[in-house]
Design a protein around this nucleic acid. Sequence first.
RNA 1: GGCCUCGUGGCGGAGUGGUUACGCAGAGGACUGCAAAUCCUUGCACCCGAGUUCGAUUCUCGGCGAGGCCUCCA
Length: 477
Amino acid sequence: MADTPVLTLYNTLTRTKGPFTPIDPQNVRMYVCGPTVYDFAHIGNARPVIVFDVLFRVLRHVFGETAVTYARNITDVDDKINARALRDFGAEIESGRLSLNAAIRQVTEKTANQFHADVAALGCLAPTHEPRATEFVQPRDDGKADMITLIGRLVERGHAYEAAGEVLFDTGSMADYGQLSKRNLDEQQAGARVAVDGHKKNPGDFVLWKRSSPEEPGWESPWGRGRPGWHIECSAMSAAYLGETFDIHGGGLDLIFPHHENEIAQSRCAHGTSVMANVWMHNGFVQVEGRKMSKSEGNFVTIHELLHEDSFGARQWPGEVLRLAMLMTHYREPIDFSVKRLEEAERLLARWPAEGRAERGRVDDAVLAALCDDLNTVAAVQALHGLAGRAAQDAALLDDFAASAALLGVVPRKVEVSGALEAEVEAAIAARLALLKARDFAAADRIRDDLSGRGVQLKDGKDPQTGERVTTWEVKR
RNA sequence: GGCCUCGUGGCGGAGUGGUUACGCAGAGGACUGCAAAUCCUUGCACCCGAGUUCGAUUCUCGGCGAGGCCUCCA
């Protein structure tokens, strides 16, 4: 392990790449913004999940399995969720058969379950902690950080104020607000699409708490029954599981402003710290025909559709193909999502060996070095491909291949074959070889075509010693 | 209007002040009864202009183009 390369990461905060030094190597702490659970996740939503899953694996490899804490939240309080509950359960709510809260719970439970199934199919490990926002609104019995306490502290310290039924963060109270996005709020008002609300002290001030009407979901608080603003949940939950200052915070590029900027403002001002997270990482977008894939544009494909329906490229795609396709581009670059790209990933995967055992192998130096270079999965995939070629010549490398592939979370899988089919194919091969010896090519080809029609591909080779024909086979997808 | 990215061959994508990765696809060949698989070989590029330099795809400046954030957003 002496030759373990230094892990280098690009930090949005400094716009530079630098060596990663954890605050505590015994407990490396990472937070990633998770999904808002109101609808199926699309493949664009999958990108950060996959990217940071690779980082999670790399961190565990470098610092040790048990030395990494990864928290990814589930946002289950949001006005879009409320709207979805009303849409899907309007009649039941109307008739009194279902309360709004129960309807909301149904929407969030179903969506969260679906999300878990989707990302598991994409080969992602479960994070260490997956807190739900609704459990961190009010003070908790276990004393972990919560939103109301955090907001209270911001008010106490003069960083927040009440106005028009809302509690707002006072951006003017923070001297270096805007460090992450490099924005100077004073200079960018001209032409900006910022709703200037009369009750705000500064146009950039944002909501920490807002009142709920009786028919909206809400929690009791010192500022009346209401619900939290968008950003405060991540400040509370990251503090709850990772502490006031931690190592890595990740998410999509579009979260830099305002979400992450405001998280930083809240957390630092509430805790009186100079940093929230040392390294901020942001993944690029999945695009469709050069444009960002998004719900509002309507140009999205859900993970579920890709896995289980024929809506993209008129077929279904295995999770590992989707994952590899995603890792064939560096995480900070945009990806244009296309059938061609998925086909290339599938071809690559089909050539990789599935026989190795990761737990017996050793991660390839080139693969690890690539991943340690700001998660250069492109170079890692190429190094892996090279290793696959060498493993084809030298079976001793199969386990190393498996261990290296596992660091990317990619596991080539051969289609399961029943014992009966196996025996049948072996018998057919023997029969064909006999026919070939008798030079009855027509009959031999019939056997080959028949198997091919059933998805079994025969491959003839030569025994290097005897020069005799050796036939191997595999099941095509 | 402010801020941030990015522009490399058919596609995906590295990288470098000079000798121009790699993968996929394509072409040719070997092998084969024919295929498939495998192996070998191979064509194809650095947005435009100016500058710095003996020399720039790589550095500087200016264009042009694309995308993103500034509103919910991975």
